[in-house]
Amino acid sequence: MRQFASLALIAAAIFAPSAAYAENLAFKLENNTSRMIVKFYATPVGGDGKRLELLNKKGLWAGKSRSLTIADGSDACVYTTRAVFEDDSFYDVTNKVDFCESDVYSIEE
């Protein structure tokens, strides 16, 4: 009986449909502009998720990159993003970004 219960738990873990997507999403943000990014926001598409500020007030200098993590506890993969620059201008992504499919995200002028 104990062996059957263990096999059932293993099978449930393997075939759980959303288990792989409920994890944190890690990616590298590349700033390929001439200005410092002071804030970078990500908002899940199609849900009630909140807008997350991922740079945590540390900024990202021009020409640099940083590893970031979206840890909102949702199963979302697709996000809209906004980068705010040091001169208060901003860049909104017109296309949605699938962070489950992409591990590098570049912002260019």
Rank of each mutant, 00 (worst) to 15 (best):
S89D: 13
A16Q: 11
L25S: 03
S18H: 14
T69K: 08
T94Y: 05
K96H: 04
M36C: 07
S65Y: 08
E86G: 02
I107V: 13
T69L: 04
S106F: 07
K57H: 10
V38T: 15
T43N: 00
N56G: 00
Y79W: 10
V38A: 05
L52H: 02
C100P: 05
E23Y: 08
G59E: 06
A8K: 09
M1Q: 02
N32W: 12
S6T: 09
K58D: 10
S89C: 03
F85K: 03
A62L: 05
E109D: 15
F27H: 12
N56I: 00
E109R: 05
L60E: 07
K64L: 08
V104P: 02
A22N: 13
V45R: 09
C100S: 11
L60F: 07
R51W: 01
N56F: 06
S106H: 11
E30Q: 08
T43M: 00
I37G: 10
E23T: 12
I37H: 07
E53T: 02
Y41S: 05
D72P: 12
E30M: 04
K50H: 07
D72C: 13
S67W: 01
R51F: 04
F4Q: 12
A76R: 14
T94S: 03
T69S: 13
D87V: 03
L9T: 07
A71E: 14
P44F: 02
E109V: 11
K50F: 00
K58R: 13
A16F: 09
L29P: 08
S18G: 13
D72V: 13
P44G: 07
